[in-house]
Amino acid sequence: VITKDQQAFMNVILDAYNRHQIPPDVAKKLLQEQYSAEENFLLLTEMATSQVQVLVEFTKHIPGFLSLDHEDQIALLKGSAVEASFLRSAQVFSSKMPNGHTEVLEERIRKSGISEEFMTPMFNFYKTIGELHMVEEEQALLTAITIMTPDRPYVKDQQAVERLQEPMLDVLRKLCALHHPHEPQYFARLLGRLTELRTLNHYHAEMLTSWRMNDHKFTPLLCEIWDVQ
């Protein structure tokens, strides 16, 4: 049974998750006509930048985050930005979009200079997220849990992060039992996605190196969060 405190705790995270989304006028550009690889790459870079801004605003509302050491806050954001962004875009990608939009988006991503060896695991991840049919609370909590992962590089006080992540895992476990009573493994399946995200994170780092080789330009915020000079 979810206690009243846990319900309130979850509502804070869910409310922040819903309030901080990529602005519609930015997201709308994904459906614009131009299709050249350069335009697609620029568009995806703009989306990624907006996604990072949204992520930071969401993270600031995760209970306890702003009480952490400042450097650890930066380390958590840098360490989780790629994974949390993929988790959010997977949720957007698999959500009910007007017909045809998913195909347009997929086509745009396929034609933006991203290597095939990266796109396959990325679209597989989008598919597995879609198949899970997570409810909104589960999506919000899983995103917060991804960000509040103690063993990110340069995090000094891992116990403090763990103490903040624990209650989120407890509530998520109860939610899974509540919303998926016939699937006792559902909670484990959600956590399995976090492992898949780490693999995506690894691919992304490799892709970044290849992009830097042929001199792709990123926005200052992306350079900072991806540690690209």
Binding site: E57, H70, L77, L221
Partner: peptide, 16 residues
């Protein structure tokens, strides 16, 4: 040292 954009975003008041 170039001011960190991330720090600026983090220090900006969380819009309620």
């Amino acid at each position: 040292e170039e001011p960190s954009l991330l720090k600026k975003l983090l220090l900006a008041p969380a819009n309620s």
